[in-house]
């Protein structure tokens, strides 16, 4: 088994995919860092101050004024009200919601890349793990060895999980190093609030907890990793089912993008919450924003993703051990 994993690892590294992914992440992080830097600067210029309390207070007033506009959709209104209450809570407790520094940048980067960007990176590796063996013809060589088929697939799957862990680590390290050169490397101990509960009546702040940013980040990373594993497993399944890598990638890509679109419009279609792609934004539960569909919470989303994951693993192994290879 160990040998098999070593072998798969070697194939993965020889393909140099990880390096490509690292470059993509690096370039994008640079772009985001610059964008963030610009945003902070214009904000400072506009308000003439760098005092976060003044800026936050001004944001609260601006949101209040937007809320008073009568032409606003109810849904959007509710979300604004929740973020308004949250901002006010931060202000009342004298905690900066976005302490400047690389750790905060990492947090924002993770929150924004959890549902599309990182899963895409994972797909780059996962979607041709099995199907490329078909297209290269090497699958026959692999399967003629005196090793059980499920072991072959398991070694591939374990390699995938390891690769995903590496990708998440790269995203973390690169975003820290690159953004730190602009925002500074400090801020691990900054306080952040979690445990906001979004209920039907609005925002419940009775169970709010204070956390250090590094703890919060570790949790965020855990959630991002979980989402990536689930998406990776699903693409892995497609790569077993569909011989064409491009077709598998296309299906996965469509699913991910539809998820990003659906989260903005499914609130009235209740059963959509069982789709995996609307459950990807796990970090939002930590932050305390309104879920896309009422009644969703962290355990629900994790359960849904877990079921999809289990089904994908089952299907992959079942099909791979049974199917004819020619």
């Amino acid at each position: 088994m160990n040998k098999l994993i070593q072998n798969e690892m070697m194939k993965l590294i020889a393909k140099k995919r990880l390096i490509v992914i690292a470059i993509i992440i690096g370039v994008l992080v640079m772009l985001f860092t610059y964008a963030q830097y610009k945003q902070v600067q214009t904000q400072r210029e506009k308000l003439g101050t760098s005092d976060w309390r003044t800026i936050l207070q001004q944001q609260i007033i601006d949101t209040t004024n937007r809320l008073s506009s009568s032409r606003m959709q109810d849904e959007w209104k509710k979300q604004l009200q929740i973020s308004l209450k949250q901002q006010q809570y931060y202000l009342d407790h004298d905690i900066n919601p976005a302490e400047p520094g690389a750790p905060t940048f990492m947090r924002i980067f993770l929150e924004n890349s959890i549902d599309l960007f990182l899963p895409l990176m994972v797909m780059v590796i996962a979607s041709d793990l099995v199907s490329s063996e078909h297209s290269l013809g090497s699958i026959k060589l692999l399967l003629t060895r005196p090793v059980k088929r499920w072991k072959v697939l398991l070694s591939k799957y374990i390699t995938l999980c390891l690769a995903i862990s590496l990708i998440i680590a790269m995203a973390g390290i690169l975003s820290y190093l690159i953004s730190g050169s602009v925002f500074g490397y400090k801020g691990w101990g900054a306080p952040i609030l979690t445990g906001f509960n979004v209920t039907e009546t609005g925002l419940n702040t009775s169970e709010v907890k204070l956390l250090s940013l590094w703890k919060f980040l570790l949790m965020d990373f855990g959630l991002v990793w979980f989402v990536s594993i689930v998406v990776g497993t699903l693409s892995f399944m497609l790569s077993v089912l569909i011989r064409s890598t491009a077709a598998g990638m296309g299906v996965m890509l469509a699913a991910l993008i539809s998820g990003a679109i659906l989260t903005n419009m499914v609130s009235s279609w209740e059963t959509a919450k069982y789709l995996f792609m609307v459950n990807l934004r796990l970090t939002d539960y930590m932050k305390g924003t309104a879920p896309p569909i009422e009644g969703m919470n962290l355990s629900f989303s994790i359960m849904v993703l877990f079921v999809w994951w289990a089904a994908a693993v089952f299907v992959s192994f079942f099909v791979f051990t049974k199917k004819d290879v020619y």
Partner: peptide, 16 residues
């Protein structure tokens, strides 16, 4: 890293 992220995930669920 796989273990670290696993711990993070466990912690997140536990803390929640």
């Amino acid at each position: 890293f796989c273990l670290v992220w696993l711990i993070g995930l466990g912690w997140a669920v536990g803390e929640y």
